[in-house]
Amino acid sequence: MRVRPAEPKDANLIAAIYNQGIEERSSTFETTPRSPADMLERVNSMKRYPVLVMVDDADQVVGWAGLSSYRARACYDGIADFSIYLDSSIRGQGLGKQLLQSLLKEAETHGFWKVLSRIFTFNHASLALCEACGFRQVGVYEKHACLEGRWLDCAIVERLFPINQPA
């Protein structure tokens, strides 16, 4: 498996993988499936917020990870939210670590000083992945949102990069 920047041609499979996560109700509060056009818009905004894909030997997308804006205020320009989704057929093989580490390198290259996310507290695989990639859990948002009548807590994870300060 290898990781590369997402291309417009990848939007169909990125949407399909994201829709698996939406259907499973294990990693996002989203309930509306995403179309390829939705994901193409995200791929096309990669200048500031990269989207990477993991591809197999046939160049078929089997996972994706991306950065997005944390908050609109200028003081938060160096902070990005991240998302990562793997096709159900490849989960549990340690491939998420390769993809997330690649995304973290991109984040640092793009000048972010912090990457963070909110993860359902019952999503042990994602929490373990974050820990393995150097994230720390900084707290829990209790009853962060309601998903199909069930209030869910989210762990807040962050990974900081060294900040180059002027001498």
Rank of each mutant, 00 (worst) to 15 (best):
P5K: 05
E7N: 02
N12Y: 09
A15N: 04
I17R: 03
Y18V: 01
N19G: 05
F29G: 04
E30W: 02
T32N: 13
P33A: 11
S35F: 07
L40C: 06
E41N: 12
L52Y: 00
D56K: 14
D56V: 14
D57P: 09
D59T: 12
D59N: 15
D59I: 12
G63V: 09
G63T: 09
S68M: 08
S68L: 03
R71K: 15
C75T: 12
A80P: 07
I84Y: 05
D87N: 14
S88G: 01
G94D: 11
L95A: 10
K97N: 11
K97C: 11
Q101Y: 00
S102Y: 03
L104Y: 09
T109G: 09
H110S: 10
R118D: 03
F120L: 04
T121R: 05
T121W: 01
L127I: 10
L127Q: 06
L129A: 05
L129T: 04
A132H: 09
Y141T: 04
A145E: 01
A145Q: 03
L147W: 01
L147T: 10
G149K: 10
L152N: 01
I156C: 07
E158A: 11
R159A: 14
F161V: 11
P162W: 12
P162Q: 14
Q165T: 15
Q165M: 14
P166E: 12
P166N: 12
